[in-house]
Amino acid sequence: CGSDLVESRPALEAFTPEEIYQRGEVELADGDAEDAAYYFGEIERLYPYSEWAKRGLIMQAMAYHRDEDYPNARAAAQRFLDFYPTDGDAAYAQYLLALSYYDQIDEIGRDQGLTFQALQALRTVIEVYPESEYARSAILKFDLAFDHLAGKEMEIGRYYLRRDHYAAAINRFRVVVEDFQTTSHTPEALHRLVEAYLALGLPEEAQTAGAILGYNFQSTEWYQDSYALLTGQGLSMEASGDSWLAQIYRQMVLGEWL
């Protein structure tokens, strides 16, 4: 069926770039983002060297993004960054580029590949345009995407734990504790390590994990679970063995985390 507008799009050669830009803004205001993107794109095609072409390009990226047409939004944002890297709106273009990956995560929740791209694009916003108004919300979204990656590691770790493949599970949970320690999954990862090491018959490791959990996440339910599990097995919560204690002291008290 296609969008009805295609036939009725007048030949725009006769209009000035400003008129086309205003037409685009009207469409955007009417909530018809797709047509707005078309008009803004036409300015760039017909008058590539006009001042309106630059403004049209960033508006085109924003319109496509609002229309949830993420691939086109990325293409337009990238073109803006190629031509006008130093422009005031460059930060917004980079942010739009990152958002076009990030917003797809909800739609394609399960896919890891996309999350990596979102993280890289968000990191560019944070590092290249730290003072821009978008840096702060990019950091927020970066943490959420990062949390999502940790969630996938946990999902796979639990898959193996449930099937008694303890070594495989431990490796996944260790990745979360080491590479994703700022995410919301770390307390659970530590508790799962307690469970897995106990099941394997390595109580000292279980105690070490429990101790780190105890020190950093005392208020979480995971800590209660580990506490019950360890004490239930007649093991105390402190890490046993001398040299480990020294290391745990260095990490937890001095904050050289894992």
Binding site: G109, R110, D111, Q112, I156, N171
Partner: peptide, 26 residues
């Protein structure tokens, strides 16, 4: 096998695909 990383599964859950592997990480 150090890791089995599954990508591109937009709707299918990871475990549905991982279930098809008899090899386990490690």
């Amino acid at each position: 096998v150090e890791r089995i990383d599954i990508e591109g599964n937009n709707t299918t859950l990871d475990r549905v695909i991982r279930n098809q592997f008899t090899s386990v990480e490690g």
